[in-house]
Write a protein that binds this DNA or RNA. Structure first.
Length: 436
RNA sequence: CGGGGCGUGGCGCAGCCUGGUAGCGCGCGUGUUUUGGGUACACGAGGCCGCCGGUUCGAGUCCGGCCGCCCCGACCA
């Protein structure tokens, strides 16, 4: 993208409504704009981040054997009456009427709909297990939206649902998702800690929430440093090996981890390597048995021909919240520091002297070779402005093309995270950047 | 929902107490000057002062109602 022709409205000053860093930086870096309380429009750079996160989530879901679908945002009230949640859910659910006075709602979650979908098509135990997910906008009419995109009313969520024949199967699905989540968070460049949780209004009896560490997180978390040493993405845990999943689950539960609410000082005392910090919840998984399959009358023919209500679980990752959470975890005084995997652009090319033949030529060449992965600051701006904007936007790499180096075929390469700079040739700059 | 605060050019704010027809900084445009970490000067564009009603000769300013937004608390991906 050429910055001179892009909608990336950076701000020098912080709009007064933004209190926390991620919100401030998202506004200042031109990622989002607020449309109403807790409702945001995603501008080009922000949308790229959101898509990058969604892409990683999707790849890990697929790798775990989950199938992607896309369910509608609008749901009939009917479905929720079947499960008994229409009245139970309360004012957080946005209820709508269409022109025929039919009652609809903007989905806050999709257990009912996916159960109904499965009920329509799945007849036999032979068709189980299955895990389905989608990445779709949700609406929860929060009493008090805040923290920008981290507690919006409208938010993008990956929600997945597992269907198994029996409890043992459900546990396998649960563990697969847990592993997929740890891999996802690792790839997103954040340290996530799974914690046993209350299952809340979704209902059920086995539940973990995933907290990522960020200095400005909402809750205090305590955990065993052992979590930090596990490489979830390695081949040590195979998705299709129940023994591996078991070993993985054991590792996740044997090490101490708790939020301040559930902190057990006695157990904590026994932890060898203590870690604590602030955390933000970015994911939540639940096992809830036959709560929905029973209430909604979803049964399949079992091995002996008699009907069995499938055991279910649901698995959520707040994709749009993750954008804010990532910034909370990775920023400095100058702005955002994106992990390479989610950055809207891998590199920014700063042409310090637009109009200078050598600079223009070098910058254009780099821009062409980086093929869409770079944001080219081709504005006729002063260098200081370009540097400040690039730092604010947080590109992992900055390629500074100035008249001093360009004449010699060199550029300055800067790594945003470390501030480290070096004078390198064009080719060398390109190879650094493509090396992830 | 309880408590607090705020709505004035794109952004940050002053003006309101003590009514007299809107101002500052940034940003934006043009020109000159600069140019390696938010350059300087000049000129310029841009404002139903959140909305409705009331008081008044006159309302950004006073009064009433409404709407919106933010913060703290209870609740949540």
């Amino acid at each position: 993208m050429r910055l001179s022709r892009s909608l990336v409205p950076t701000l020098k000053e912080t709009p007064s409504e933004a209190q926390i860093v991620s919100h401030r930086l998202m506004l200042r870096a031109g990622l989002v704009r607020q449309t109403a309380a807790g409702i945001y429009a995603w501008l080009p750079a922000g949308w790229r981040v959101l898509q990058n996160i969604a892409r990683i989530v999707r790849e890990e879901q697929d790798a775990a054997g989950a199938q992607e679908v896309l369910m509608p945002t609008i749901q009939p009230a009917e479905l929720w009456r079947e499960s008994g949640r229409y009245d139970a859910y309360g004012p957080e659910m946005l209820r709508i009427k269409d022109r025929h006075d039919r009652e609809l709602l903007y989905g806050p979650t999709n257990e009912e709909m996916i159960t109904d979908l499965m009920k329509q098509s799945v007849r036999s135990y032979r068709e189980l297990p299955q895990i389905l997910y989608h990445i779709q906008w949700k609406f929860r009419d929060e009493v008090r939206p805040r923290f920008g995109v981290m507690r919006g009313r409208e938010f993008l969520m990956k929600d997945g649902y597992s269907f198994d024949l029996d409890y043992a199967g459900a546990v396998v699905s649960y563990r697969k998702m847990m592993l997929a989540y740890m891999r996802t968070f690792q790839r997103l460049g954040v340290q996530a800690i799974p914690m046993e949780a209350e299952s809340g209004p979704i209902g059920g009896d086995l539940s973990h929430e995933f907290i990522i560490l960020a200095p400005t997180g909402e809750s205090q978390v305590f955990y065993d440093a052992a979590f930090e040493r596990i490489d979830y993405s390695s081949a040590n845990f195979a998705m299709d090996s129940e023994a591996d999943l078991e070993r993985f689950a054991a590792a996740m539960t044997e090490h101490y981890a708790a939020t301040d609410e559930k902190h057990d000082t006695q157990r904590w005392a026994g932890v060898q390597e203590k870690r604590d910090g602030r955390g933000i919840e970015v994911g939540h998984i639940f096992y809830f048995g036959t709560r929905y399959s029973k209430s909604m009358g979803f049964a399949v023919a079992g091995r002996d021909g008699t009907p069995v209500h499938p055991e279910m679980g649901s698995y959520g990752i707040g994709v749009s919240r993750m954008v804010g959470a990532l910034i909370e975890a990775h920023h400095d005084d100058a702005g955002i520091i994106w992990p390479d995997s989610v950055a809207p652009f891998r590199a920014a090319i700063l042409n310090l002297k637009v109009g200078d033949a050598a600079c223009d030529q070098a910058a254009e060449e780099l821009y062409g070779k980086l093929d869409g992965a770079a944001l080219y600051d081709d504005r006729e701006e002063r260098a200081g402005v370009k540097f400040a904007d690039a730092d604010l936007m947080g590109h992992p790499w900055q390629i500074v093309v100035g008249p001093r180096g360009a004449a010699a075929g060199n550029v300055e390469l800067k790594r945003r995270a470390t501030g480290e700079r070096q004078e390198v040739s064009l080719e060398s700059a390109l190879s650094h950047i493509s090396r992830r």
